[in-house]
Design a protein around this nucleic acid. Structure first.
Lengths: 211, 211
DNA sequence: TTTACATTAGTACCAGGTTCTAATATTTGC
DNA sequence: GCAAATATTAGAACCTGGTACTAATGTAAA
């Protein structure tokens, strides 16, 4: 009985004391979650310890909240940002000629080889960025056209399977139609890694002989 | 004397044993430093432990080397990269990546700017190579998808008019559908030079949340 | 009042280090 | 050939920013 009394006193005391605190400082779980998301969004470099100060709850609560919200720890957040920026910087320069043309029969067909290196992959997955595979095919499609000016007009492409670091892409282009003196040529390109087709594209190439 | 003798034996033994190791496995300090710089440059996410394997020296040596060369620890490197990219996203002026992302609303839309320079054009015509315009759009389509792994599955693209040296390409991406937890998202990208649309693409992006 | 949920506390453990001391290995100079 | 200088390795204590887990306690709803 006495214990209960003490508890009641405690409750009462804290209640009247805290209730105002509640209104001013503390938030409901939902609101705290919202605020947490906002704070991390504003500053992704914030530690749990700093969050406890701002939200006035224990560090365990912060961690439970992150768990529930699926927000990774600071280091993981930084890592993800770093990887992202690394990928961006990496994708810098597409070389002038992408792939080595090893065979070329103008207006008929061509073959080029392109090896996927560090620069061409996403650092996390080591899978080639699509535009490199595209660039190889696009360059070949243009090279195979025997014309002063040849430009890609449109393309319909499929990435059939991911290409990984170290793999050699062999692109084969076939001219399907040339369409007269001036106009559009259709070129089909298939890219293989070993026997496996990894990319297929139908290119429409604009061409104009003379000027 | 006996101790010295033992030492000499040891030296001799290790020498003849190690000398070959030296030639095959080990490098001089200078060479190791060069290699260390190279390795960290190639993959900034490498830990000291991984470096010990590659350079065949103890972890203490790696750490002394980093100290001498002023290379910070992995976490600090990641932090710097993260901060750099964070600053980049916040500020408008960026390096020449394949398009500078100036606005990004994940799973919604994004905008990137890419200026066509000498490197990006056919020297003869001064018209941009198609794959650069494609790369800008492709990178943006992937960046706009809020996912661990996002890869281009297929694309349907149109080059509406030639883009010339010095022109600024403004690509706008819109996520049209996300298709659940795992699967394919559709992203539409329009690239403009001033008011004129020069490129349009429909990308199907493969995405996989978690792993 | 009992039950369910929310919050807090505390412990052990981890990666990937720093900092320091100390021993040993190898090279260099004389 | 030997001492001094330099290079390498080993180990312990400590740090940050966490995870994973157990357990107690506070608070609201039935």
């Amino acid at each position: 009985m006495r214990l209960i009394y003490i508890y009641e006193l405690k409750y009462g005391g804290f209640n009247s004391g805290r209730r105002s605190c509640f209104v001013i400082d503390r938030l409901s779980k939902k609101d705290r979650h919202q605020r947490l998301i906002q704070l991390i969004d504003e500053n992704p470099f914030v530690t749990d310890r700093e969050l406890t100060r701002q939200l006035k709850v224990s560090i365990q609560t912060i961690r439970l909240d992150r768990m529930e919200l699926g927000i990774p720890e600071l280091r993981e957040r930084m890592k993800q940002m770093a990887e992202h920026s690394y990928d961006q910087v990496r994708s810098l320069s597409l070389e002038e000629v992408i792939g080595d043309v090893v065979d070329l029969q103008l207006d008929k067909s061509g073959i080029s080889i392109f090896e996927i290196r560090e620069d061409h992959v996403f650092s996390k997955t080591r899978i080639a960025r699509g535009h490199y595979v595209f660039a190889q095919a696009n360059s070949l499609a243009i090279a195979v056209i025997n014309d002063e000016i040849a430009l890609t007009s449109s393309a319909d492409i499929r990435f059939l399977r991911q290409v990984r670091l170290g793999e050699k892409c062999i692109a084969k282009a076939y001219v399907r139609s040339i369409a007269g003196q001036k106009g559009k040529a259709k070129v089909e390109v298939f890219t293989y890694v070993a026997d496996e087709m990894v990319f297929q594209g139908n290119f429409v190439i604009y061409r104009s002989t003379g000027e």
